[in-house]
Design a protein around this nucleic acid. Structure first.
Lengths: 160, 160
DNA sequence: TTGCTCCTCACGTCACGTGAGGTGGC
DNA sequence: TTGCTCCTCACGTCACGTGAGGTGGC
């Protein structure tokens, strides 16, 4: 199962999960991820599989989960007497997280498209502009279609 | 243009952008979003269009941008002498943000699928389980396909 | 008039970042 | 041996949250 694999150093953990050493130590402080032991020199050693757990935690964080929410997820099974009830509650929790993920995904998708549309306007109109960047000049510019500008462009290019 | 629309209260700003009053005041502290004035009682008043700017800021934050990055975006046009150069630099900045957004989108998509697969396992196998939630019992469970479990399930259900 | 919201400090919190001074490991 | 990384405090930082005590506005 990987439990007997040879232990892995903090450095390798950090590399695989794309976090920092401080973050891993902090997760240990709050009880999320503990090393299996230490080297003779006092360096932390982890199970090889723990890199995957760290990665999961890091991804849940990027997804907007708090450490408290993550701890709740990991603690749920252990905190219930029977598997049926634990399973039901966990399904509920996961459904909430998934719902938030879906909302976040649609928001990020819209934002990506909006920023992309701004780049397109900059490339097609502003890249050849010979004028200094002034509010009145840009507001009167005939190279851009003022009625169909992406939201991000309007605010960043000060057209509002 | 919306600049002459009747001013809008903090309450309406917060509602439209789904943030908090504290957050709006904080953005004012750091110079990101200033009211056009105050009511006779001292309450903040904003241009109607500013709700959209607040929404953009809030979305950029959800997307992982720091306030410093957001400030840089909004300040770029004003900080360059000619529009061509400002346009070029802004294209670069936006391209970076878009790239990060794409990475984040793929991460969140994978995570959503992983969590969804965990819910599916819980529904198909654990929901009918009569046993207490123990590590040995679950590790020996014949209702789940141990070779194809989603990563999140393995860690949350303590199968590693 | 009653409530709910807004106002301004100001301290608290979450999730780490960042030196300071010392040791480990290839 | 030289560097780079790790170790443990411990204080700093970012982006707000949360009362405390007082006023505004429908």
């Amino acid at each position: 199962m990987g439990a007997e694999d040879k232990p892995v150093t903090l450095r390798e953990m950090v590399k695989r999960a794309r976090t920092t050493a401080r973050t891993v130590r902090f997760y240990e402080e709050v009880g999320l991820l503990c090393p299996v032991g230490r080297s003779k020199g006092g360096h932390r050693l982890y199970r090889a599989a723990d890199a995957e757990k760290l990665e999961l935690i890091a991804e849940l964080r990027v997804a907007g989960c708090s450490l408290e929410q993550i701890r709740t997820l990991f603690a749920l099974k252990h905190s219930r007497r029977d598997a049926r009830r634990a399973s039901g509650e966990l399904q509920g929790l996961l459904a909430q997280r998934i719902d938030e993920l879906k909302h976040r995904l649609s928001l990020l998708t819209r934002l990506r498209d909006d920023l992309g549309a701004s780049v397109a306007v900059l490339q097609s109109a502003c890249a050849q502009c010979k004028h200094p960047p002034g509010e009145e000049l840009c507001a009167a510019c005939t190279d851009i279609d003022h009625d169909h500008l992406p939201r991000s462009f309007r605010w960043i290019w000060e057209l509002i």
